[in-house]
Design a binder for these strands. Structure first.
Length: 421
DNA sequence: GTTCCACAGGAAAGCTAGGATG
DNA sequence: CATCCTAGCTTTCCTGTGGAAC
C-alpha cells in the first residue's frame, strides 16, 4: 500500500490543464486576425531593409495583447528571412528599471552570440560573458549592447509588456535610449513593441519618446460573449476530455467573463476552475453549477487578496460596516465612525484615526468595489456619505481574523448613551 | 425664502518609516 | 553612527453644500 495509490492516476475531466492557462500560446488565435496582420506587417518591414517602426499596443487586460505579441514573435523567428530575427519579451512589472531592462536584453544577446560563435570565437570579440545584475554604469551596458548587435546582422524586437509600469519607477528613460539606438547601428536593427493597459500612457511620456513609440498604434478591443465562447471552445477541445463539458458550460463562462469587460483571461480561469471543482466532487463532467461555484471561488479569492493588503484600521472600519449592516442600522459616516471608535475604546492597544481618515477609507473601499456608497442629504438631518450596499455576501467570514482578535462591543448603543456623551 | 444639520472634500501642516549620504 | 531626504499617510483646519424643516 503506497500513499499515492489513493490518488487517481489520470483525470476524468482534464487531458492537460496547461492548454487552459492564459500563458499557453495556441496555434491559432481566434478573433484577433486583424491585429495579427497589422503587427506582422509592421514587423516584417525591416526584413525588406526598411527602417523598423515601433509599435504601441493598447487594450484592457485579457484582450489578447500578450498572447498575440508572443505568437507573432514566435512566427517571425521561424520565418525564413535574410536577417536573423530575435524576439525578446519581458514584463515591466518584474523587470522595471532602465538598468534591468538593458541588462536583460544585452545578456540574452551575449548568450545567443556565444552559442553561435563558440567560446573561442566569442572570446576574440572581447565582449563580456554577461552583464552583472547590478553595478555597471548604464551607458556602458548600452555600449556593450551596440557592440553585441554589430557582431552579426540581426533584427531584434523587444516587447515590453505593461510598459506603463515603467512610469512609476522612472524606468521609461530606457524607451528613449532604445528608440534612438538604430542611429548607432549599421548592420542590425532594433524595434520596440510597447504593450499597455492604459490608453493615456503616451501622454505621460516625453515628446521625443512619444513620437517614436507611437508611430504605429494597435488597439485591442474587448471580446464579446460570442467571441469568448469560440475561444473557450477551442481551448476546451485541447484541455478537456471529450464529453467532459455539459451543454452550455463554455457559454456560461463566456457570459460571466463578458460581463467583466470581455476578459479572456478571466474566462479561461473560470473554465479551468470549474473543471477543478467538478474533479474535486468526483463528477463525471463539468456542469453549470460547477461554473457558478468556480465563479464564487474566484471572486472570493480576489476579494480576499484585496482585504489582505488593507491597513488594520481600514479593515476595522469595514468590519464596523459589516456588523452595523447585520443589525440593520443606518450606515451614515457618523454612525460608522461612532461604532468604529467604540471598538477602539474597547481595545486598549487601538487608537482611533480621525473621521477624515475614515472618510478616505470608505471612499477607497467604494473605489475597490467592496462597498457602494453615495452622498445623501437628509435635509436638516445633514449631508453625509451612506454605505448603501456590501457588494460581497461573504465579507463577514473574510474578516473572521479581526473578529476574533478584538473585543467587539454590541452595535446598538442606546440614544441615551450618545446623549450623555 | 431662510436656516441649519452633518458632513463633503480640498489644502496644508505634521508625522513616520525607510533609505541615502556623509 | 547621526543626519538629512523623501514618499506616503494622517490630522487639522477650512469653506462649501443639498434639501427638509422652519
Amino acid at each position: 500500500m503506497n500513499l499515492f495509490d489513493s490518488f487517481p492516476r489520470e483525470s476524468r475531466i482534464f487531458v492537460n490543464k496547461e492548454y487552459l492557462k492564459h500563458t499557453y500560446i495556441p496555434r491559432k488565435l481566434l478573433h484577433r486576425e486583424e491585429q495579427i496582420q497589422l503587427l506582422a506587417k509592421v514587423l516584417a518591414a525591416p526584413l525588406r531593409g526598411e527602417v523598423p517602426s515601433n509599435v504601441l499596443i493598447y487594450g484592457k487586460t485579457g484582450t489578447g495583447k500578450t498572447v498575440v505579441t508572443r505568437f507573432v514573435l514566435q512566427e517571425l523567428e521561424k520565418a525564413p528571412a535574410p536577417l536573423q530575427v530575435v524576439g525578446l519579451y519581458m514584463n515591466c512589472a518584474n523587470v522595471n528599471t532602465q538598468y534591468r531592462i538593458l541588462a536583460k536584453i544585452t545578456s540574452s544577446l551575449l548568450e545567443d552570440l556565444r552559442e553561435r560563435l563558440g567560446p573561442f570565437q566569442f572570446q576574440k570579440t572581447g565582449l563580456p560573458e554577461k552583464i552583472p545584475a547590478t553595478g555597471w554604469p548604464t551607458d556602458l551596458v548600452l555600449e556593450v549592447l551596440v557592440r553585441a548587435l554589430e557582431q552579426e546582422s540581426k533584427l531584434v524586437i523587444v516587447a515590453l509588456d505593461e510598459v506603463d509600469k515603467l512610469l512609476e519607477t522612472g524606468g521609461h528613460e530606457v524607451l528613449y535610449h532604445l528608440s534612438r539606438l538604430n542611429c548607432d547601428l549599421s548592420t542590425s536593427k532594433l524595434s520596440l513593441i510597447g504593450i499597455s493597459n492604459s490608453t493615456g500612457f503616451l501622454d505621460f511620456l516625453d515628446p521625443r519618446i512619444r513620437s517614436s513609440l507611437g508611430e504605429v498604434q494597435i488597439v485591442f478591443p474587448p471580446y464579446n460573449a460570442i467571441q469568448l465562447t469560440d475561444i473557450l471552445e477551442e481551448r476546451a477541445k485541447l484541455g478537456f476530455r471529450e464529453g467532459a463539458l455539459a451543454e452550455g458550460v463554455t457559454r456560461l463562462c463566456a457570459a460571466l467573463a463578458a460581463r467583466e469587460h470581455g476578459d479572456a483571461r478571466k474566462a479561461l480561469d473560470l473554465l479551468r476552475t470549474a473543471g477543478e471543482v467538478a474533479e474535486e466532487k468526483g463528477a463525471e463532467r463539468v456542469e453549470l453549477e460547477h461554473v457558478r461555484e468556480a465563479s464564487d471561488r474566484l471572486q472570493r479569492s480576489a476579494v480576499e487578496e484585496v482585504l489582505r493588503t488593507l491597513p488594520l484600521h481600514q479593515k476595522l472600519v469595514l468590519l464596523s460596516v459589516v456588523i452595523l449592516k447585520q443589525n440593520g442600522c443606518r450606515l451614515s459616516l457618523g454612525e460608522i465612525y461612532r461604532y468604529y471608535k467604540r471598538i477602539c475604546e474597547h481595545n486598549p492597544d487601538l487608537t482611533p484615526v480621525s473621521p477624515r481618515a475614515v472618510k478616505n477609507y470608505l471612499d477607497e473601499l467604494d473605489m475597490l468595489g467592496i462597498v457602494s456608497t453615495s452622498v445623501v442629504s437628509r435635509g436638516r438631518g445633514g449631508r453625509t456619505t451612506e454605505v448603501l450596499d456590501l457588494n460581497y455576501p461573504h465579507l463577514g467570514e473574510l474578516l473572521e481574523d479581526e473578529r476574533e482578535r478584538f473585543e467587539l462591543p454590541p452595535p446598538t448603543e442606546s440614544k441615551l448613551c450618545r446623549f450623555l456623551s
